[in-house]
Simulated assay, not measured.
Amino acid sequence: MQLPRFLMGDHSDHPDDIFVIHTEYPRFIINLIDDELEFIDDIQKADKEDLEAETKNLIEEASRFYDEQMEFYENE
């Protein structure tokens, strides 16, 4: 199965939260309400520095993905 790079998620126990899941390495879930980030993959120390800049870009991409999805649903 080919997964999209980003997925949106919600949960009835957290109705006000907005979750975006990044499905490629480094896989993570971000709550766009407070920018809390939870990595799914174990991040190796050697990768940590390289991933810091990439993660910032991925968070921005996750926010854009969410905005685009909301615009799509509003226009339907």
Rank of each mutant, 00 (worst) to 15 (best):
Q2N: 12
Q2G: 00
L3D: 05
P4L: 11
P4M: 08
M8V: 11
M8G: 00
G9V: 02
D10S: 13
H11Q: 12
H11L: 06
S12C: 10
S12W: 11
S12R: 13
D13M: 13
P15W: 07
P15T: 09
D17G: 06
D17T: 09
D17E: 14
I18R: 10
I18L: 13
F19H: 03
F19K: 05
V20T: 02
I21N: 01
H22C: 08
P26C: 04
R27P: 08
R27C: 08
I29H: 04
I29K: 06
I30R: 00
N31I: 03
N31G: 06
N31W: 00
D34V: 06
E36A: 11
L37K: 12
L37E: 09
E38R: 12
F39A: 00
I40Y: 08
D42N: 10
D42P: 04
I43H: 02
I43E: 00
K45V: 09
K45S: 13
K45I: 07
A46M: 10
D47W: 00
D47L: 02
D47P: 01
D50W: 05
D50K: 15
L51Q: 08
L51S: 05
L51M: 15
E52D: 14
A53I: 11
A53G: 02
A53Y: 04
T55M: 01
T55E: 04
T55Y: 02
K56R: 15
K56P: 01
N57W: 05
L58Q: 02
L58C: 00
E60Q: 10
E61S: 10
E61R: 06
R64L: 14
F65K: 00
F65G: 04
Y66E: 09
D67P: 03
M70L: 11
E71M: 10
F72S: 02
Y73G: 01
E74T: 06
E76K: 10
E76Q: 11
